[in-house]
Design a protein around this nucleic acid. Structure first.
Lengths: 400, 400
DNA sequence: CAAGTTAATTTAATTAATTAACATATAGTA
DNA sequence: TACTATATGTTAATTAATTAAATTAACTTG
């Protein structure tokens, strides 16, 4: 329970000013004072401290508004760097960004499966060490390491509680990495990290409440409300992949029936296409797969759809409708300002998006809900790694 | 964007202390200081102001812990009163409570349907005026009026945007009542008000995140996170009645198919029972309904179930399973600490609750989610009116 | 009844925002 | 070119609140 102290008061104002500069910069002290209703001296004094800390810097003089020219303030983006790890089930992606999310390094390293917890940790460490070796100059500017992983993550203790796709449990990531590198480490579920990343550097910017839906081999979502990730009581908030939308539907890997991901995730789409092709339905997929049904994947269906293949378009369209129904349920429950669709299947782009939007416009209860802002992710294959980075930035920029 | 000011700092501490006394009282100043990490002088000075304002008072001396006896502080419950209105689709319930939620007056007045917005407002005013006349002594202790109404409510402007069961739109409740009675007025959706009421005075006490589900002729939910109602972007958060859980199911009044409320709400249950009885299924309902199928209602089914009628028990059980599936979807999305089930159908009590719990224990993804705390409401037919009251109390006790 | 302990208040110091006054820089204008 | 108005930003004094230290109060225990 945060109590009112001078420290807290100051930290609050510091955070307000810092975020103002990040989101509105270049911006003058005077403008910040007007926007935030803080007084000019308060702004000046905090700005001085922020400059001393290196987080911001003075840039050009702005245009005069009929008086003295304002000195514009901007984030001093090269003053600090953050390492982000996307410890996916297939590979580890490592990123190094500055304070503005500028990517200075990005690499992928395949995991040789199956992998033990120790092997995974070892690999994460070696990737980080490699990065540190490569960026010796900036080493003491690195403020921390963010790790995004699928499954259930205890963010307070920084433990991966359960990573189903790797069949691992209770990996003490935070503890291991912090002792090895002596840097603060944040661990988060991948969908949640992505959501934060979208709010910081992607399609989520400027919205008060954002749900980022990640559609890949499963479906997950991250919920960001007023800049804060929403975790729920035991970290599983946003697990929409196993939302029942068709009681009488197919059985899911979780044991239940008619889960959203049995209808709209990558494997479900591929499965449906395989069936259709197998029974002789005409499609570009037959050719593209080289006659081998097992080559049909979400990616291939997307490719075929872009080439105009009707079967693929139909399959993506119907997946979009199912996803739309799942999102309607989400809208009625959470009513977010914006929903962002990302992940592998989202590469299907407009075909999928249009179906989702149509469904929502048709089925949502209120006029304003029908018009919920639905967008595609713009972060591509770096989304998760950038999300991991934003875990640390969000702390740096928030109330300390 | 709340900035850090002395006022804010103090208001924050005031709220912390006041709520501590409400939830933990009788409690001494020293104990508050220990619990909250505020310093003794800060506590003393704020307590003095709270006593002066009338909100709290000193009560008995506590037991000595080996030194001076502590002076216990409690809410001065009779210092202020609040009016609550449950402007339901069938009647208006009016309540007067003190600061501890003690009910000093409760009355119901039937609505003669159909009703226009003006008639509804007139009736609300006459009910309030009647209450004020009856409690002339306490009149200047009344701090405000809370109104709970079904449908979509714009809480910022205090307008009922759409009340489907009365077929009314855009009723300016706050404006009308504030000018008439010169008292602050808060308007809220009924399910949301109930949720807040449960947190303040019902089964929701002590939980960090609570979802209160109201099952009646429809199904609605209110979400309370850290004591704050969650509204979403345009006030529809918690509308779980139209959650699609059976794509291939029956059409709902909203036009979509397989909405939760076509499977678990009062009318759906009654419909199912009627059908079964009509085709000659043996049941106590035949007798209880006096041979007239139209007399079969949720209430009657509940009665029959309590008398051991197997058909009724089966129907309630399966409604519980459907509700459980809806709540699974909710748990996976919001992951609340506690879920409270209330409303007409919830009178079916343990039969329904057991089915819900079984379903959740069976279908939820994680061990901890399976064990989500599910309870029945304890506020009975006053739940909504008490919820309306808590709208004002929550403001009085929060940061100003 | 003295010593120790807990509770609550008083006094002084400290923190950080705010207010008021002032310095600085520029545009517009006579 | 000098003057005025205005916007930007800083300095010094003031204010509001917490915090730390000291004090008073009230009680228990040996």
């Amino acid at each position: 329970m945060q109590r009112g102290t001078f420290q807290f008061m100051k930290s609050l104002n510091r955070s307000i000013i810092l975020n103002r500069i990040r989101l509105e910069g270049p911006i003058s002290r005077a403008q910040i004072a007007k926007d935030t209703k803080l007084t000019p001296p308060t702004v000046s004094s905090i700005v001085k401290e922020l400059i001393d800390s290196g987080l911001i810097k003075e840039s050009i003089q702005g245009e005069s508004q009929g008086g003295r020219k304002p000195t514009m303030l901007v984030i001093n983006e090269k003053s600090f760097y953050v390492i982000g790890l996307d410890a996916g089930p297939k590979d580890i992606k490592t990123i190094l960004t500055d304070l503005n999310g500028g990517v200075h390094h990005f690499s992928e390293k395949a995991l040789s499966l199956p992998v033990t917890a120790d092997e995974l940790l070892k690999m994460m460490k070696s990737e980080i060490q490699g990065l540190l070796d490569q960026y010796k100059e900036e080493e003491d500017k690195i403020i921390g390491i963010g790790v995004a992983m699928h499954g259930v993550v205890d963010v307070d203790r920084g433990i991966s509680l359960y990573a189903p796709n790797l069949d691992l449990r209770n990996i003490p990531i935070k503890e291991e990495l912090e002792t090895t590198f002596n840097l603060p480490v944040k661990v988060e579920n991948d969908a949640k990290a992505i959501a934060l990343g979208e709010v910081w550097f992607g399609s989520g910017s400027g919205a008060a409440s954002v749900v980022a839906v990640n559609v890949g081999s499963g479906i997950g979502a991250g919920i960001v409300i007023n800049g804060q990730l929403f975790h729920g009581e035991h970290f599983i908030a946003g697990e929409i992949g196993h939302m029942t939308i068709d009681i009488g539907g197919k059985q899911c890997s979780c044991g239940n029936y008619g889960c959203l991901q049995t209808l709209a995730a990558g494997p479900a789409i591929a499965e449906k296409a395989k069936k259709e092709v197998a029974i002789g339905k005409e499609s570009r997929l037959t050719e593209l797969s080289g006659g081998n049904l097992e080559n049909i994947s979400g990616r291939l269906i997307h490719k075929a759809a872009m080439e105009g293949d009707q079967l693929s378009r139909d399959i993506l369209h119907s997946a979009g409708i199912y996803l739309g129904i799942g999102l309607i349920n989400l809208i009625h429950l959470l009513n977010p300002e914006r929903i962002i669709i990302g992940g592998g299947v989202a590469n299907a782009g407009e075909i999928l998006l249009d179906a989702v939007k149509e469904t929502i416009a048709k089925m949502a209860l209120t006029e304003r809900a029908k018009q919920t802002d639905i967008r595609l992710s713009g972060l591509g294959n770096k989304a998760t790694a950038i999300g991991a980075v934003s875990l640390l930035l969000s702390e740096l920029f928030s109330i300390q």
